[in-house]
């Protein structure tokens, strides 16, 4: 009798439920805490209802918390997987541009690193021709001061343009550029130039506009750009300024802009900024 009782005590301490005890072939009985065990000889002992209720409540609580944890983990996995899928293309691009994987030129770091700005001796010179255009709305003259420059890949070179404001008003212009042929585009890099920013010329003023550029020596490894010996760099000046948001807008009064759109005779509501 003694070892059996010890086993019952042990069961009580491990808190096995009644069903478990049944499966072990033990009699259903309540476990007494602190009370003397009922040593009745009957095999069926009524379970202690208070303890059973506590047991059930405990199980319910742990099940609820388990379910909630599972739900949280599942949701997190779904969201992370969705996010990674969504970001896969840009992530892959970043990876490729950082490592040069799959032939992507390394752009994330160091296109302008000092060790890349060294002339490649012995390479064929590339002739960079200069071209200039000007918007009809801009009363400037704008010309390159040299027709072309022969440069080595990796060599930083200077070039000059000249701009003159022919009107009697101060005018803001912005230059855009393009490079032909377009396969040299990724390799044609400017250290500093007069593009991308507003240039204000006073009435009748003439200024020299320098441009410091180089051709990335990676072009020597690009077979598709092997035959490129002539490059045309073209600048176009527009009459424009940047507004507060940084967008380009015509550098002219509202009436002129509206008239150019064919709304000269109409009364227009004032712009949001002016209200």
């Amino acid at each position: 009798m003694r070892p059996y009782l010890q086993f019952r005590e042990m069961l009580a301490s491990t808190r096995l439920g009644p069903t478990c005890r049944q499966s072990l072939g033990l009699p259903r009985s309540s476990i007494n805490h602190g009370r003397p065990l009922q040593r009745s000889m009957s095999s069926r002992v009524e379970p202690d209802p208070v303890y059973l209720r506590r047991l059930q409540a405990n199980r319910l609580r742990s099940q609820t918390s388990n379910n909630r944890t599972l739900l949280m983990y599942t949701t997190a996995v779904i969201f992370v997987a969705g996010g990674v899928t969504y970001a896969a293309v840009p992530l892959y691009r970043m990876f490729c541009s950082a490592t040069g994987f799959a032939g992507t030129p390394i752009t994330a770091i160091g296109k302008f690193a000092p060790d890349r700005l060294v002339p490649t001796e012995g390479a064929n010179r590339i002739r960079v021709r200069f071209n200039s255009n000007i918007s009809e709305a801009l009363p400037w003259t704008f010309t390159p001061q040299q027709k072309y420059v022969d440069v080595l890949p990796g060599e930083t070179s200077l070039a000059f343009y000249k701009a003159k404001n022919n009107s009697d008003k101060d005018i803001i212009g912005i230059a855009t550029y393009n490079v032909t042929p377009d396969k040299i585009g990724p390799y044609f890099a400017k250290v500093e130039c007069f593009c991308f920013e507003e240039q204000k010329l006073l009435a009748g003023e003439e200024v020299d506009m320098p441009l410091l550029f180089f051709i990335d020596k990676d072009i020597l490894d690009d077979h598709s750009a092997n035959g490129v010996t002539d490059v045309v760099l073209s600048y176009t000046f527009f009459r424009a300024r940047r507004n507060k948001q940084g967008f380009l807008e015509p550098d002219a009064s509202e009436e002129v802009v509206e008239a150019s759109k064919g709304f000269a005779g109409y009364e227009n509501a004032p712009k949001v900024e002016d209200r």
């Binding site: 296109k111 302008f112 890099a189 400017k190 250290v191 500093e192 130039c193 007069f194 593009c195 991308f196 920013e197 240039q199 204000k200 010329l201 200024v207 506009m209 320098p210 441009l211």
Partner: peptide, 8 residues
């Protein structure tokens, strides 16, 4: 350009 624009 890497270092912006030259002032006039």
């Amino acid at each position: 350009p890497d270092r912006g624009a030259f002032p006039l």
